[in-house]
Nucleic acid binder design. Structure first.
Lengths: 113, 113
DNA sequence: TAAAAACATAATAATCTTTGCATATATTAT
DNA sequence: ATAATATATGCAAAGATTATTATGTTTTTA
């Protein structure tokens, strides 16, 4: 499997509003389940479900501390991705010269946009 | 809206097996619809639907050349992301000292894994 | 030892995505 | 004009994801 495809599942797991917030928080330090519950104002089972998914993809892991579970980041790809998500781009990729050759070749069209 | 959240939609759009392949191909040059049809062996309407989604998120754009539509990459975030997806990591993020303090504080638990 | 706290799991309901199929549109070739 | 090619669109069926509700487990506290 190509590396890009193997990371696809990971990308899907990350691309959720709650889970990305969980991951952002975890880059700042260890958190337990009810920390997320309060921070995002969602139900505890819902937090647990998201954490379960992240766990099953080896994105996070946890310590048991009494009745708390202290979650932490495990997957090194995450901080890099979160960093990239914050990057600002000044302009779009410039359009290629119209009309470059595709597999089908170019037609003698009007080459308008 | 935080930058990370504004890029979330983009991430969701990218995190699809066909669409990521389309984007990979487009980093190599301009392609028309039927190029993808052949390359991934999926129906033409299906290709068009994926391209429509990518278009609506300003990820790609196209030239009209006769009856061909020549698609190209527009969103500068994409090449950087595809690059990052290929990056290899030697090891996981090391686990923090057990058990660090969460909002809830630490319990006098057994601090086992 | 009973109650409470923290978390997990399971089942279901609600929602969103994806695909397939039929059809529509635009352009070129005959 | 008519047919053929290239692509787009609309809609319904199937599939996947997410949130909700109920319940279970473990640990601590009273």
């Amino acid at each position: 499997m190509l590396p890009v495809e193997s990371r696809l599942e990971l990308l899907k797991v990350i691309a959720h509003p709650i889970r990305i917030k969980i991951l952002e928080d975890l880059t700042k330090g260890v958190k337990c389940v009810s920390d997320f519950e309060e921070a995002f104002d969602i139900s505890q089972p819902n937090v647990s479900q998201h954490l379960k998914l992240l766990r099953s993809h080896h994105v996070v892991d946890y310590f048991v501390d009494g009745r708390l579970k202290c979650y932490f980041l495990k997957e090194p790809f995450i901080p890099d991705l979160l960093e990239l998500l914050k990057k600002e781009y000044k302009r779009d990729i410039p359009a290629p010269a119209c009309c470059p050759v595709t597999k089908k070749g170019t037609y003698p069209g009007e080459r308008r946009r």
